[in-house]
Each structure stands twice: as C-alpha cells, then as structure tokens.
C-alpha cells in the first residue's frame, strides 16, 4: 500500500532534515499510529503520502504508484484514492453536513444519483444520520470530526490518513472517534494516524511507528505510545525541544 525507501526531506531554510532516511512499509488493512513530538516529521510523512511534498531523496510508493514519477496533473486523480482527516476538521461553514460530504463527490464528478445514495449511507456509518441538514457550527467538535471522516471515506478510498484527528477533542469524544476509525479499518481500509495522545495509542494496541527528529526510532506491531524503557522519556524530549529553539 505505502512504501518509503530511504526517504529524506530537507527544507532549504533548515539545516536539520525534516525526514532522514525513512524506510517504512505499510500493508493493506493495517492500522498504524505515527507518534512523536511536534516537529518529529509525522505531518511531513503524511504530506508525502498525499504528494503535497516530494522527498529530497529516496522513493515513495503509494498504491503501486511511484509518486516522484506521477505528473502534477495526475495528482488530483491519485488523491481520490486517499481519504484525509485533520485536527481542524476543515469543513465548509456555509454548507450543511450533507452538502459538505456531497461536495467531495460533486467536485470529482459523481452523478447525482450516486451522491444521493452514498451520502446518507456514510452519514449513517459515522452516526450522523439525523443531522444531515445541520450546519457545522451547530455541531459539537466530535460531530464535526465525524463529518470530516464521512467526507474522507464517502468515496471508499483504500487508504485513510488522519493527522491528529483527536487533537481538538476531549477524551471521551476521542474514544468515539477512535472506535469509528477502528470500524473503518475493519472494513479493509488502511488507516495511518498521526497522534501524540498516549492513552489512545495504548488502548488500541496497534502498530506504532515512532519518529524523532525525522528518524524512525521504533516500529512495533501492537505497541504502546512510549517505549517500555523508562529512562528515555522526559529527558530526551527536553533535549529535543532545546534543539528546536536553537534552530
């Protein structure tokens, strides 16, 4: 599904690379957490899967496509195979729940008939069947994120990318969102989720890839948020933040 081969990314302004020699393979149907401090490269990695960024060196393969070889005008069609959810929901405020989800299908040219079937279906899956005509500001944060998830999966993409989807939500709401993502994953969708919420990672017991300063520190099947070595934790993170301030 997703393969990174020795991928590095250097921004010209920063001396320190955002990603350094990342090699990673994510298989079909996996649920993978990307964990690590802010600035560790989680978002860059997700943006590379979306081909919003290109690696400085190395190769990224997604869904059998070598992304460097993908011409820009094909990128929109490639992205139709990826669902994306963000911390800030990114909904259109002047459109209802139904319209927000339908908008995705409209802009990729789906027929009216398809839209009128697919949208109510997906709203039922995310648990918003009765709120189709609400506007985003009339919903709670958790509900808004459910709309965003509905929008991401309405086209049944094989991969769902989630960048801190629970970052703005309280723990019990987060649990609901995680249950939804787990359900989507059970349906066969590969889910890649960046987060730094330890309790979520620990409770799910899924694969964990930990990034630190652009390198993969560990890659464990059914891992937890922190490495089981107690000594690592705070000290190391402090040092890391110090480094960032200097940069």
């Amino acid at each position: 599904m997703i393969r990174f081969d020795e991928v590095s990314k250097t921004y010209s302004r920063k001396a320190r690379p955002a990603l350094e020699s990342i090699s990673l393979e994510i298989l079909k149907g996996e649920f993978v957490f990307l964990v690590g401090a802010s600035g560790s490269g989680k978002s860059t990695l997700i943006r590379m899967v979306l081909r919003e960024e290109r690696p400085t060196s190395g190769e990224v393969h997604v869904l059998g496509q070598r992304l460097q070889a993908l011409p820009s005008r094909r990128v929109p069609f490639f992205r139709r195979n990826l669902g994306v959810v963000f911390q800030d929901f990114r909904l259109l405020h002047n459109k209802t729940v139904y319209e927000n989800v339908a908008f995705t299908l409209q802009v990729i040219g789906k027929s009216r008939g398809f839209i009128s079937e697919a949208v109510p279906d997906v709203l039922k899956i995310v648990g918003l069947a009765g709120k189709a005509s609400r506007l985003p500001h009339e919903l709670s944060g958790g509900e808004q994120q459910r709309v965003a998830i509905a929008r991401a999966v309405v086209n049944r993409p094989p991969i769902l990318l989630a960048d801190e989807p629970t970052g703005n939500l309280d723990p019990s709401t987060s649990a609901g969102i995680m249950a939804l993502l787990a359900r989507i994953n059970e349906g066969g969708t590969t889910v890649v989720m960046a987060t730094h919420e330890a309790s979520i990672v620990d409770s799910m017991q899924k694969r964990v890839v930990e990034l630190d300063a652009g390198r993969i520190m560990r890659d464990e099947a059914s891992g937890s948020y922190r490495r089981q070595l107690a000594a690592y934790d705070d000290e190391d993170q402090d040092a890391d933040e110090g480094a960032e301030v200097r940069a």
């Binding site: 979306l50 929109p76 069609f77 994306v84 990114r90 908008f103 995705t104």
Partner: peptide
C-alpha cells in the same frame, strides 16, 4: 484547499 484535498481536477 478542500477541493484539492479530495482530488478535484485542476480544470474543475
């Protein structure tokens, strides 16, 4: 931004 995210073609 959302259009680009969900894969609307440039022409669209």
């Amino acid at each position: 931004g959302i259009m680009r995210l969900v894969g609307a073609s440039n022409r669209f």
